[in-house]
């Protein structure tokens, strides 16, 4: 047998338990989502079911107010990402291009806020939003997500910006460009991929956030997807599991696909700056 083939078989055998455990919840999700309601609780429990009920998805959409939660999640994720990027891009540019007093302290501050988790501050954040009159307002999430994400986006952006050679901009200045022109014509076009990748990760962070959304949003009209799905499960006597699973499929699969496609950029970004 070819050595590489043999090695591949051994590796896959070693990975297989983990692969099974990782894929197991996905299987559970799909199999439950398309199952007829009266086959949810059968004894003994079994994987098989009589027919694919694609209608579960449409039913779930209406009954659980999925559309509204989807919109809320999009609203919060898009706006918080936009806010974080608008504030991060200049900061990351300054970090990668200029020396300035307090730069070291600023980098330390970034590293520390990157580690700061909302859960520890959740009570204080809630009181802050009460004081601002922003409880039950999606914009409270926009602000907090942006603030907590910024350390990550600045870090990620500056590690990419630093790979764009400075002498390209210098060459443009000598060619007759102003700072602004060189930024627009030379730097930004080269930085677009980095900004797109960073934006997508920031978006996913907002999309997946749970604790703050659970705390700040009290009325079900303003629930984001994770809270909406959680509310279908928590404290209910009768849980419509086929709807819950249909909801998780719709909420997670698109994000999982985008993430899988982009994960190599995250690895590269971390290798460039965040971890090394």
């Amino acid at each position: 047998m070819q050595p590489k083939l043999k090695k591949s078989l051994i590796y896959w055998a070693m990975l297989s338990p983990l692969v099974v455990v990782i894929l197991f919840p996905f299987a559970v999700m799909f199999v439950t989502a398309v199952r007829p309601r009266d086959e949810l609780f059968v004894y003994p429990p079994r994987w098989g079911f009589s027919e694919f009920r694609w209608g579960n998805f449409a039913e779930m959409w209406v009954k659980t107010n999925f559309g509204e939660a989807l919109f809320n999640s999009l609203y919060v994720s898009v706006l918080s990402t936009a806010l974080a990027l608008v504030l991060s891009i200049p900061a990351a540019y300054a970090l990668s291009r200029y020396r300035f007093p307090g730069k070291g302290a600023y980098r330390t501050f970034l590293l520390m806020t990157q580690m700061m988790s909302p859960i520890v501050l959740v009570l204080g954040l809630f009181r802050l939003m009460v004081a601002l009159g922003m409880v039950n307002n999606l914009n409270s999430l926009v602000l907090t997500y942006a603030a907590f994400n910024m350390a990550f986006t600045i870090w990620m952006l500056q590690s990419y910006f630093s790979t764009i050679p400075r002498d390209l901009e210098e060459a443009a200045w000598i060619d007759g460009a102003s700072h602004f022109t060189s930024l627009v014509r030379i730097f930004l076009p080269l930085a677009v991929p980095a900004m797109a990748v960073t934006a997508i990760f920031s978006f996913i962070n907002g999309w997946n956030e749970f604790v703050l959304a659970l705390t700040m949003i009290r009325s079900s009209d303003d629930f984001t997807l994770p809270v909406q799905i959680y509310s279908q499960v928590a404290g209910r006597y009768q849980v419509e599991w086929h709807h819950v699973m249909a909801g998780t499929v719709l909420a997670t699969v698109p994000v999982a696909i985008v993430f899988s496609w982009l994960q190599k950029y995250l690895i590269r970004g971390m290798a460039l700056g965040a971890v090394k």
């Binding site: 983990l18 990782i22 919840p25 439950t32 997946n208 956030e209 997670t252 985008v258 994960q263």
Partner: peptide, 24 residues
């Protein structure tokens, strides 16, 4: 493929993962 599979749990919010496991 192996890399994509191993990274999958990261892509999914902990909330969703926990909901699915609660049912499983």
């Amino acid at each position: 493929l192996a890399r994509v599979i191993i990274m999958l749990p990261w892509a999914i919010s902990l909330t969703m993962t926990a909901v699915v496991w609660r049912w499983a």
